[in-house]
Design a protein around this nucleic acid. Structure first.
Length: 323
DNA sequence: CGTATTTGACCAGCGC
DNA sequence: GCGCTGGTCAAATACG
C-alpha cells in the first residue's frame, strides 16, 4: 500500500541532528548536559524508528492480507452469482420437467419460454428487503446473467390483454420459510397484500395463494405465492406488474391483525423484487459479508496506522519537545 | 361492525 | 364440444 511512503519517511529520521550545533565548548557543565540530552534524544529517536519499522512491517503485512482478502471477496461474489444463476436454471428445470399431460406440458413449456425470454430483458436493479429475520438477497438471475436485475416476463395469465402483457413485469422471489407455516404470508416485501384466492395446481401439491396489492385500489400488481414442490421450506412468490404508488410507510407491531397481515409485519419499503436462495447460497453470502466486514476493519486499521505514521514522522522531523 | 381470509363456484384458454 | 387447468369472483366466515 504505502511501503514507498514508509521508506521515504524513515529516511527523514536518519539525518536528524536533534541536539543542534555545539556551542560554547568552554562550558563543561553545559556540554555534559547537552551530551546527556543528546543521548537521551538519540534513544528516543531509535525507539521511534524501531516503532516506525514495526508499524511499517505491520502495514505491509496488513496490506498483503487486505489484498488477499479483496481477491477472496471478489471470488466469493462470483461464486454467489454463479450459484444463484444455477439455482435459477434449476428452478426453470423443475417447472418444465416432471411428467404430466400434453396440455400441461405445453403450458409448462410456454411458461419456461416466457421465463427464458424474461431473463434476457434486464432492467434497473432493485433494492433488497429483509423478511422477519429471514435472509433475503435482492437478486434475480437469468441463465446468462448473474447480477441484480429484475425479470421482465410476458404474463402467463390467459386473461390478461396483450397490451397488459407488454406492460407487465413479472419477477420471482424465493423465501426460505418454516414448513409448518402454511399461511403463505411470510413473503414480506413492504407492500400490503390482500389474498383473493387459493388454488391447488397440477404440478405442485402445495396450494398457490393469489394476492392483490391492497394499499392502493388502483394498483394492479398481483402476487402468487406457492411452496416449492422440491423444497417445502422454500416459498416462491411471483410478482405480476408494477406498483403505481410508493411503498407504504413502515409500521411496527401496532394493532396488526391476527392472521398474517402483511401490513403489520412490514419490514422494508423495498421494491418487489427480492430473490432468496437456499441455505447454501445464504451461508455463502454470509461469508462474503463477513469477509467484507473484516476487510473494512483492516482498512480502518491501516488508516489508523497511517495516522500514527504521520504523527511519528511529524515528531521525528523537529517537533520533539526539546528539554 | 368493518375488514381480511377462506373456499367453492365460475370463467376462459388450450389441446384433443 | 369436452375436459383440463389456472385464475378470479363472491358469499361465508373469522377476527379485532
Amino acid at each position: 500500500m504505502d511501503e514507498q511512503w514508509m521508506i521515504g519517511q524513515t529516511s527523514l529520521s536518519l539525518g536528524l541532528h536533534v541536539g543542534g550545533p555545539r556551542v560554547a565548548p568552554s562550558v563543561t557543565r553545559v556540554l555534559l548536559e547537552e551530551d546527556f540530552m543528546s543521548s537521551k534524544k538519540n534513544h528516543e529517536v531509535e525507539a521511534l524508528e524501531a516503532e516506525l519499522r514495526r508499524v511499517g512491517e505491520e502495514n505491509r503485512r496488513l496490506s498483503h492480507m487486505l489484498r488477499a482478502l479483496v481477491a477472496k471477496y471478489a471470488d466469493l461474489q462470483c461464486k454467489v452469482s454463479g450459484t444463484m444463476a444455477a439455482a435459477n436454471n434449476h428452478h426453470q428445470s423443475w417447472t418444465t420437467s416432471e411428467d404430466g399431460s400434453s396440455a400441461s406440458a405445453t403450458r409448462k413449456r410456454a411458461r419456461s419460454d416466457s421465463l427464458d425470454t424474461a431473463s434476457r430483458n434486464p432492467s434497473p436493479p432493485l433494492a433488497a428487503a429483509g423478511s422477519s429475520g429471514r435472509f433475503a438477497v435482492s437478486v434475480t438471475v437469468g441463465p446468462d446473467q448473474a447480477e441484480c436485475t429484475p425479470v421482465h416476463e410476458p404474463c402467463n395469465s390467459k386473461r390478461v390483454r396483450a397490451d397488459e402483457v407488454k406492460a407487465s413485469r413479472v419477477s420471482k422471489l424465493y423465501v426460505h420459510a418454516d414448513p409448518s407455516d402454511v399461511s403463505l404470508q411470510v413473503v414480506k416485501d413492504g407492500f400490503q397484500w390482500r389474498k383473493y384466492g387459493q388454488k391447488v395446481t397440477k404440478d405442485n401439491p402445495c396450494p398457490r395463494a393469489y394476492f392483490r396489492c391492497s394499499f392502493a385500489p388502483s394498483c394492479q400488481v398481483k402476487k402468487k405465492v406457492q411452496r416449492s414442490a422440491e423444497d417445502k421450506t422454500m416459498l416462491v412468490a411471483t410478482y405480476d406488474g408494477d406498483h403505481n404508488h410508493a411503498p407504504p410507510p413502515k409500521q411496527q407491531g401496532s394493532g396488526g391483525r391476527k392472521r398474517g397481515d402483511a401490513a403489520a409485519v412490514r419490514v422494508s419499503a423495498a421494491p418487489v423484487l427480492v430473490q432468496q436462495q437456499g441455505n447454501q447460497e445464504a451461508s455463502t453470502a454470509e461469508q462474503v459479508a463477513d469477509r467484507k466486514n473484516l476487510a473494512e476493519q483492516m482498512a480502518a486499521t491501516l488508516t489508523r496506522d497511517a495516522g500514527f505514521k504521520a504523527a511519528l514522522v511529524s515528531a521525528l522531523s523537529g517537533q520533539i519537545p526539546v528539554a
